[in-house]
């Protein structure tokens, strides 16, 4: 009975792992399908399939997590990760609704820009999926993937700010409204990207709290920073010396 339970926990853990990976891949697929739908303006059923898949996977994961050891530290962390991935999926659905509803109300340029951003969001979603996958495979790889994810998301958020603070009439003054479709879609996309960053943050938090030698890693990173700073300082000193030397040489020549 006891061994059944122990073995049961292990199989449940494996199933949770698979489902979490599956769930984390849905936003990427969804954004890609949405990009196709918006760029071709033909209804893409992959989006609907993704929505159904997301609901099913979420339900299955909840069932599995209830069967597992919900109260332990690892399980709580996994459950919080699951919640954050859910948030990404939730926000992406509203983007689809807004894109279809406000298709006619937007300038073509802005619409095209948003479509391209959707494609980029799909890439960010893939990075999020790779981060979750790497969390189960290798902590170091996961840290790198999260860094990539953060870079990508921050870059996209910066690009989205252009929609929120745009100059509509070209008079050089910022005139925007939060009810403008570009702003509404841009904000939803930004929230979705922000949720992806949150997933990344959760992964880093999990690595720090579950890994035994994360403190050593932090020390190493600090040391690396110090070494870099020292190198920079040396380079600056060398440059100054060179400048002084050249000045002296010039003076001597004169």
């Amino acid at each position: 009975m006891i061994f059944d339970k122990v073995l049961g926990f292990r199989t449940i853990n494996k199933q949770i792992e698979e489902k979490l990976k599956q769930l984390s891949f849905i936003p990427s697929k969804y954004f890609e399908a949405l990009y196709v739908e918006c760029s071709t303006r033909i209804t893409c059923h992959t989006c609907d399939i993704c929505e159904v898949e997301e609901v099913n996977v979420r339900g299955e994961l909840l069932k599995l997590m209830k069967q597992g050891q919900v109260d332990t530290k690892t399980e709580i962390e996994k459950y919080q990760l699951f919640q954050r991935i859910n948030e990404v999926s939730k926000k992406s659905k509203t983007i689809r609704l807004l894109m279809t509803d406000h298709l006619e109300n937007m300038k073509k340029e802005n619409y095209d820009k948003l479509v391209i951003l959707l494609k980029e969001a799909s890439v960010a979603g893939k990075l999020m999926h790779y981060s979750v996958k790497a969390l189960y495979d290798n902590y170091d790889e996961a840290i790198n993937k999260v860094k990539e994810l953060n870079k990508k998301c921050n870059k996209l958020i910066e690009e989205l700010i252009a929609f929120r603070y745009y100059d509509q009439d070209g008079d050089g003054l910022l005139d925007y409204s939060f009810e403008e479709p570009e702003v509404l879609i841009g904000n939803s996309l930004r929230v979705s990207l922000q949720e992806m960053i949150n997933v990344g943050e959760k992964i880093i938090h999990m690595i720090k709290s579950l890994s035994y030698n994360h403190q050593e890693k932090e020390v190493d990173e600090e040391e690396l920073k110090r070494i870099k700073e020292k190198k920079k300082a040396k380079q600056e000193r060398d440059k100054k010396r060179e400048k002084r030397k050249t000045k002296k040489e010039k003076k001597k020549k004169k």
């Binding site: 006891i2 122990v6 926990f9 292990r10 853990n13 792992e17 332990t72 690892t74 969390l135 189960y136 495979d137 290798n138 902590y139 170091d140 996961a142 999990m206 579950l210 890994s211 035994y212 030698n213």
Partner: peptide, 27 residues
């Protein structure tokens, strides 16, 4: 234990495996 586990556990999957082993040992 922390030294050995810290050296060998490099992913969440390994962490869960280690937890299972420790669970049996704990029993």
């Amino acid at each position: 234990v922390r030294y050995i586990v810290g050296k060998s556990v490099r992913s969440l999957r390994q962490h869960e495996k280690a937890n299972s082993v420790f669970g049996v040992l704990l029993l």
